[in-house]
């Protein structure tokens, strides 16, 4: 069986962050992720969505699920059109924060997923793509 689904969620407000958590959870359940894997991917989604709302001035998230023989996974791409991240290396370091947070967001998120790809251009915005395989 091979199937895939794609869901787009707008990210403008705190309510949207909660909505995204619910949508990611739904898709993780469809993929029959374990409860722990559901928790990890939903937590990662929450971190990225909050970044997009608070620092990126809003954006959108795309949830893609793929059900293929042997390789089921959930891919989440969070895109904003905010100021971008001038120094990605700094931003990925645990303890780095510009927003009064704990600075665990990006470095912690990377630990919760199997694949993590961050692209950012100053003045253009930031895009983060994460994948959790089943």
């Amino acid at each position: 069986m091979a199937a895939s689904e794609r869901v787009t969620v707008a990210l403008r407000t705190q309510e949207d962050v909660v909505s995204l958590r619910h949508r990611v959870r739904e898709q993780a359940v469809v993929l029959r992720f374990s409860l722990l894997d559901q928790t990890k991917i939903v937590t990662a989604a929450s971190e990225l969505a909050r970044n997009a709302v608070i620092y990126g001035g809003g954006g959108e998230a795309i949830i893609e699920t793929s059900l293929n023989n042997g390789r089921d996974g959930l891919t989440l791409t969070v895109i904003d059109h905010g100021p971008g991240i001038p120094n990605v290396e700094d931003a990925m370091r645990a303890g780095f924060s510009t927003g009064g947070g704990l600075g665990l967001g990006l470095s912690g998120t990377r630990r919760l997923v199997d694949e993590f790809e961050l692209r950012s251009e100053v003045g253009q915005g930031t895009s983060v793509r994460i994948v959790r395989w089943k």
Partner: peptide, 14 residues
């Protein structure tokens, strides 16, 4: 606290 929450928090670094 749910067990999955505890495990995830520690992996997150908190």
């Amino acid at each position: 606290m749910q067990p999955a929450v505890a495990i995830t928090l520690v992996e997150l670094g908190l």
